[in-house]
Each structure stands twice: as structure tokens, then as C-alpha cells.
Design a binder for these strands. Structure first.
Length: 572
RNA sequence: GCACCUGUAGCUUAGUUGGAUAGAGUGUUCGGCUACGAACCGGAAGGUCGGGGGUUCGAAUCCCUCCAGGUGCACCA
């Protein structure tokens, strides 16, 4: 597609008689908030001093000198110190609709990521523990990034770094040995394991000997005692099966499920490399890497004083493994900001591992804000948490209720309620900038009006309804684009034009909320268009143009929502 | 105590590589279904952009300082 901004930059560059780089121009050119001020604007303040002229004069002068094809820009106006560019709307319309007609369901897809590999480490729940709403953000943010990177042509690998290692498994084994017969793990296994875990924990705090036994169990598990490894596998398998149910609902996909236990077997080499680097030092009985040179006060512990490894060691093993296995250009870690220091530390230590520079540079912590309940911080131990399964169940039920009320004749109510209820939850988790904390509000989740997932789905359903009524879809070549020059149509076309840039911006900032916001804007623009313009009208030319635009909106809404992990119903 | 993050309308928030009148949703309120789906659209009211100082032609945005909340700060993950 024509890059209008680029054309304007070129034209300005040729017109000015002072030195200014293309990059600077790129920075100066802005998109006016109010479209009355044009599509692009060039503020002339900053050159006033240098040229000893008023910004107004500079703008006037420039206007005289700039030569740009009317095919791109139909008008340039001076508005005080601003030079406002009005792009040729027919060209814009032609470009956008042609591009969508050529690419259809692949509009916005690109090859900018070709040849680049990106690993995304997300979700990472702990085995034998409930999947609660604290895991929601990492799962949907990571999932959205996964989809979007893939769409932009990157070789994308989704990693679920399961928490399947640690003394807690010694405890579980000890508990299961004692009372395993009382629990049927074929039903709600995670709840049962949770009960066992709580029971053994209570016993451990009463009786030091039980705790000691649990530690011993874990040691034997590590040493490969067959009976224990079997138990561990069993806990892991039933847990994954439970998680998979939720992933199926959320549409999450992982290419690899290597958990901590897997990397725990690969820590020896990490320790050896660090030892050889001379940076591994003894400190209070532990082996650590001092990071004060890196501006990090807290040293990174590699080996505990009892000789065993720690989370950081396993994460480093994962970096080493992933660098070798995937030769990644980027490796993203989607976790809450509680782990900011941890990642700062291991990224600093990773420089000592002897992996490629690009891998080191590609390590990135994508952190997000905490979810709190109105009653305070969530805690699995205190039983103060909301399970994702329960939340989804509730929003799906709400969707069902609303369907029953508004569209009782709908044929596949169950399926639609699922899409709407889950869509509401996913959208809610993605719609605000990831860094902000959130107090979990069930009422907000159950609201399907306004800036919500169901709003976008509803607008999509409207486009489908309109298109359903058309016998012959118009061809792009037949369209008379003059029929799409009203402000409501143009507002949509401008948004459609932005789509690919939005996707790129999402990856630059690792911020899916940009796409979520964009989809709201597009849905809203269509809703206004729909209210202002009757689509199916007598005049064939007008009808065809509006129908075609409706089909374009329909496609982009669906592509965008799917990238966020939201399914679109055809009716609701 | 130190470091980092957050603070924008009653509530949830967009805008933070400095740019024109701070933009939405929700709630409140008024209006619009005999026109393609009202889970919608339009109007009104609602803002010391946490406070103060500074830099600049220009600050929600950059710098300093203070206030409030959160998170982290050695063998948990």
C-alpha cells in the first residue's frame, strides 16, 4: 500500500532549504487528533530559531515550495504554525479496498518477521495447584503475542514452563503415600491434590519429622526412584489434563511443555560455565554471581548453601537450551512484575553463558500488573482465589441468559454463549495496558455493553447479517469509490489502513491492548456508519460500495479478534 | 531504608519518542426501534491530568521535589 506519510516526508525534504534528516521528519510529522486539521500535520515551531522566521512564515513558505502529486495529497493548508496535509481520499479508498480484496482473510499479514525466531514463555502454572485468575493475564497476553508474531511472519515458539519441580512434590508424595487411597484422582484431581497438599502441610508444620520425610522423598525423586517418578508423572499428567481444559476454552496453544524438572537436569553445565568464567563466588555458603557492576545490588544465587539449585539456575539452563535449540532472536517472558528483579538478574548472568549476542539482546521480560481480589491479594494456601474455570462458567451462563432474553430463537445457543462469555473475559484481560494493577471485578466481567468483547462480536454479527442479505457480492473492480467519501465511510477506511501498523506496534511494545483498543475503534466506527448510512438501498452503486465496505470491516474485525484469541460468532 | 512501577471525570481507562479544544466506556440524565439486529446510536452534566517547582514558543507527557498506593530487595517460584 502507498505509505502516505513517507510520500509527505519526501516532499518536505525536497522543499526545505535547510538540513533535516528523514528520521527527524518522521518524528515531527504527526496525525492531528481532529481530522479537520488534515490527515498529517507538520508543526513548524522548531525551525523558527534556526531560520529566524516565525513558524507561520515557515509554513507559508513551505506550502509554496512543496510539490506532491495530487494523487497522494489533494490539499495542503496552512493553519497558523502548522502545515496540514489532506490526503487524497479516493486514492486511500482505492488502496485499502484493493489490498483487502487481494488478501482477504490474510489482510495485514506480512513477512517482516521472516527468518526471525521468537520464543514466548507464558502461562506456566504450577502442577497440582489451581489455575486461578492470576494466571489469566500471562496466558492471554502471551497467547495474543504468539498469534500476532506468527501472523507477521516470525517463527514463533510457545513455551509453557510448568512449575513441576521442588520440595512441594516431596510433600505431595509423602501425603499421597499416607492417604492416597482416600482420594480419587480421576475426578477434579487438582482439588484433591490441593487437599492432600494442605493436609500434609499442616502435618509438616506440626511434626518436623514429616517435613524431613518429605525432603527425603524429593531427594529420592530427583535420584530417580521409580515409584516416586511414577507418582510425579501421575500428578503432572492429571494436572496438565486439567489445564488443557482451560486452554481449550481460551484457545491457548503451546509448542512445548518443558517444565522446571526438565531444565533441572541441565543445570550442571550452567554451573560449570559460570565456574569457568570466574564469576561464581562463595557467599555465606552459597554460590552466587555478583552483579554490582551491572547496577544490581542483589547477587544472583546459583547454588544454595545446601548445594541444590534454585529457580534462577533452571531459568539460566532454559536460556542456554533455548539459545542452542532455537537460536532465537527474541525470547519473551510473560510474568507479573513481581519477578522484575529476578529477570534483571538472570539476563545479566546470561551474558556469561557464551551464547550469541543477538540471543542476549533478545531476552525480554514482558511484565504485567497484579490481579487482586476486593478482599486482598490472592493466595492458594489461604484459599483466597477465583478459579478461571469458575469465572468462565459464570460469564458463559450470563451470556446464555442474555441470549435467552434477546434472541431466544437462536439455534446454537450453547456454542454462541461460550464464544461470548469467554470473549468477554479474554477481552477484559487484554483491553488495558498490561502494567496496571487490577482489582478483580466480577461485575465488569459480566458487563457485555460498551468497551467489551461482546460489543466487538456484536458489530461483527451485524456485518454478517447485512452480508447474508446480499445475493451477489459486488466485485472490487465494479465499485464506484465516490460513494464511500462521506465522513463515516472515510473514518472506517482510515482505520482499515492502519491495521498492519497496529500489529507492528503491538510487537514493538509487546502490548496487545493496542490491538484491543483498535478493534473497539473499528467496531464503533462501523456502528456509527451503520446508523448514519442505510446499506441496502435502491441505488445499486451505493449499495455495492457500502456492502463491500461492510465485508472489509467484517474481515478485519474477525482477523483482529482471532489474533487476540477471541472467537467470533456469526449470530448472537 | 534503597530500587522500580502506578496515580487522568463518581468508577474503569486512552493519550506518556513534548504539539492545535485531554478522548472513550461505565454510572447519572434526556432523546431515538413500522428502515439492514437497541448487546446499538445521539445529546447533557461530569477533569486543579496526585500536589508544588522547573525546562520550553508549547508539558498529562521531560527534570527536581513532596504525597498516596503497589512490588521487589540472598538461598520460595
Amino acid at each position: 500500500m502507498i505509505d502516505f506519510k513517507h510520500e509527505i516526508i519526501n516532499a518536505i525534504k525536497k522543499a526545505v532549504d535547510f538540513d533535516i534528516s528523514e528520521q527527524d521528519l518522521h518524528k515531527y510529522i504527526e496525525k492531528p487528533k481532529n481530522s479537520a486539521n488534515g490527515d498529517y500535520a507538520f508543526p513548524c515551531f522548531s525551525f523558527a530559531k534556526q531560520l529566524k522566521k516565525s513558524p507561520q512564515e515557515i509554513a507559508e513558505n513551505l506550502k509554496q515550495k512543496i510539490k506532491i502529486s495530487p494523487e497522494y495529497v489533494q490539499e495542503i493548508k496552512v493553519s497558523g504554525p502548522y502545515l496540514n496535509f489532506y490526503i487524497n481520499k479516493i486514492t486511500l479508498t482505492q488502496e485499502v479496498l484493493n489490498e483487502i480484496s487481494k488478501n482477504q482473510e490474510n489482510y495485514g499479514k506480512s513477512k517482516i518477521g521472516e527468518g526471525k525466531t521468537i520464543v514466548i514463555d507464558y502461562s506456566a502454572p504450577n502442577i497440582a495447584k489451581p489455575f486461578h485468575i492470576g494466571h489469566l493475564k500471562t496466558t492471554v497476553i502471551g497467547g495474543a503475542l504468539y498469534n500476532i508474531y506468527k501472523y507477521l511472519g516470525y517463527n514463533t515458539i510457545g513455551e509453557n514452563f510448568l512449575g513441576d519441580y521442588g520440595t512441594q512434590f516431596g510433600k505431595l508424595i509423602e501425603g499421597y503415600k499416607r492417604w492416597g487411597k482416600d482420594y480419587d484422582l480421576t475426578q477434579n484431581p487438582i482439588d484433591k491434590l490441593g487437599e492432600i497438599y494442605k493436609r500434609i502441610n499442616d502435618l509438616c508444620s506440626e511434626d518436623e519429622q514429616v517435613l524431613e520425610a518429605a525432603r527425603e522423598d524429593f531427594k529420592q525423586l530427583e535420584n530417580g526412584k521409580e515409584e516416586y517418578v511414577e507418582l510425579w508423572k501421575k500428578f503432572r499428567d492429571v494436572s496438565i489434563k486439567e489445564f488443557q481444559k482451560i486452554y481449550d476454552l481460551l484457545g491457548s496453544h503451546f509448542d512445548s511443555w518443558k517444565g522446571e524438572a526438565f531444565y533441572a537436569t541441565k543445570t550442571d553445565e550452567v554451573i560449570q560455565i559460570l565456574q569457568d568464567s570466574g564469576r561464581l563466588v562463595e557467599s555465606n555458603g552459597a554460590k552466587v554471581v555478583d552483579l554490582t557492576d551491572e547496577g544490581i545490588d542483589t547477587p544472583c544465587i546459583i547454588c544454595k548453601s545446601n548445594g541444590s539449585t534454585i529457580y534462577a539456575t533452571r531459568d539460566l539452563a532454559a536460556i542456554l537450551y533455548r539459545a542452542r535449540t532455537y537460536d532465537f532472536d527474541k525470547c519473551l517472558y510473560v510474568t507479573s512484575y513481581e519477578q522484575n528483579l529476578h529477570f534483571k538478574q538472570i539476563f545479566a548472568v546470561a551474558k556469561l553463558l557464551g551464547i550469541k549476542e543477538k540471543c542476549i539482546k533478545g531476552l525480554k521480560h514482558v511484565s504485567y500488573g497484579m490481579v487482586r481480589l476486593p478482599s486482598g491479594k490472592m493466595s492458594t494456601r489461604a484459599g483466597n482465589f477465583v478459579k478461571v474455570e469458575d469465572l468462565l462458567h459464570e460469564t458463559i451462563e450470563e451470556a446464555k441468559k442474555i441470549i435467552e432474553e434477546k434472541n431466544p430463537d437462536l439455534s446454537n445457543k450453547e456454542e454462541v454463549a461460550k464464544k461470548v462469555g469467554i470473549g468477554a473475559v479474554i477481552f477484559n484481560s487484554l483491553a488495558t495496558s498490561r502494567n496496571k494493577d487490577e482489582i478483580f471485578d466480577i461485575k465488569a466481567m459480566l458487563n457485555f455493553q460498551g468497551e467489551t468483547g461482546p460489543y466487538i462480536q456484536y458489530m461483527y454479527v451485524r456485518t454478517k447479517s447485512v452480508l447474508e442479505k446480499i445475493e451477489n457480492m459486488p466485485k472490487f473492480e465494479q465499485l464506484k469509490l465516490e460513494n464511500l467519501q462521506d465522513e463515516y465511510s472515510i473514518a472506517i477506511i482510515k482505520l482499515l489502513y492502519d491495521f498492519e501498523n497496529i500489529l507492528v506496534e503491538v510487537t514493538e511494545k509487546e502490548e496487545p491492548s493496542i490491538l484491543a483498543r483498535y478493534l473497539l475503534d473499528l467496531a464503533k466506527a462501523y456502528s456509527v456508519f451503520y446508523n448514519e448510512n442505510r446499506i441496502i438501498v435502491e441505488d445499486e452503486e451505493v449499495k455495492n460500495a457500502r456492502v463491500y465496505l461492510t465485508a472489509c470491516v467484517s474481515k478485519v474485525l474477525k482477523i483482529g479478534a482471532n489474533l487476540l484469541g477471541i472467537d467470533m460468532p456469526n449470530k448472537m
